[in-house]
Design a protein around this nucleic acid. Structure first.
Length: 198
DNA sequence: CCGCTGATAATCT
DNA sequence: GATTATCAGCGGA
C-alpha cells in the first residue's frame, strides 16, 4: 500500500497545485522528474519529460492556435493530449509563464496498477509498460477524452517527490527542428527511460 | 548491438 | 502530397 499524501509531503492533499505548472516550462519539466503520476489510480514515478514552448519551432504551438492545440493555449495545469503518427496518444502538462507551453511526459517507472498496465499493454514485462510516450498513455488508458482536463482533479493525481533526484538532461527525441536544445530531462540511470542519456 | 520498415491519421504545404 | 513530439518486428553484424 502506498504512503499517504500527508506522510510524503506534509500536505493534507498531496496533489501538485496549479501554480506548480505556471513557471518556465523548462523548470517545470525538470521538476516533474521524480513526481508520481496516477490516472484512475494507475501510474508511477515520472522518469522522463520534454519541454516545449511557444517560439519553439518543434512545438505544436509554434504556428499559433489550431483545433488540435487548443489546450496548449489554455491555463497551465491542464492536460494536452494529441494523436501521434496516427496510432499513439501523447500526454502533455500545459505549463509555462506564457500560453503555448507544455511538458511531454515520456516515461514512467510503474508503481501502481501493474495488472491493469500489463493487460492494456499486452505484455508482462514492466520495463515495457511506460517506456515511451505512446506506451505510457496506453498503459494508463489516456486518450483524447483526457484532453483539456485539469491535473489537480480526478482522474489525475500528481504527487510531489521526496528528495532531490539525480537528473540528466539532453536533446529531445524524434524532432528535426531545434534538435540541439537540451530540453529532455530524466532520472539518471533509470531502466525505465524510453532511451538512455549519454 | 544497429538500422530499416510499415501502420495510420491529423495537420500543413 | 509530405511531415510527424512513435512503436514493434524484422534482419544483419
Amino acid at each position: 500500500m502506498e504512503r499517504s499524501g500527508t506522510e510524503r509531503t506534509g500536505q493534507i492533499d498531496g496533489t501538485l497545485p496549479r501554480a506548480f505548472f505556471a513557471r518556465e516550462v523548462v523548470t517545470v519539466a525538470r521538476d516533474l522528474v521524480g513526481t508520481t503520476l496516477l490516472v484512475d489510480g494507475v501510474g508511477g514515478l515520472i522518469v522522463e519529460t520534454e519541454a516545449y514552448d511557444r517560439g519553439d519551432p518543434a512545438s505544436h504551438s509554434f504556428a499559433g492556435p489550431t483545433p488540435r492545440n487548443t489546450a496548449m493555449f489554455g491555463p497551465p495545469g491542464h492536460a494536452y493530449v494529441y494523436r501521434s503518427y496516427g496510432i499513439h496518444w501523447c500526454l502533455n502538462f500545459v505549463s509555462g509563464l506564457q500560453p503555448g507551453g507544455a511538458v511531454l511526459i515520456r516515461a514512467l517507472e510503474p508503481v501502481a496498477g501493474l495488472p491493469s498496465m500489463a493487460a492494456r499493454r499486452r505484455t508482462e514485462i514492466p520495463r515495457l509498460f511506460c517506456a515511451g510516450p505512446g506506451r505510457l498513455t496506453e498503459a494508463l488508458g489516456v486518450t483524447r477524452a483526457h484532453d483539456g482536463l485539469p491535473l489537480d482533479a480526478p482522474p489525475f493525481r500528481i504527487l510531489p517527490r521526496y528528495g532531490e533526484p539525480d537528473i540528466a538532461a539532453g536533446p529531445r527525441i524524434g524532432i528535426s527542428r531545434a534538435a540541439d536544445l537540451p530540453w529532455r530531462f530524466g532520472l539518471a540511470g533509470s531502466p525505465f527511460l524510453s532511451r538512455p542519456f549519454r
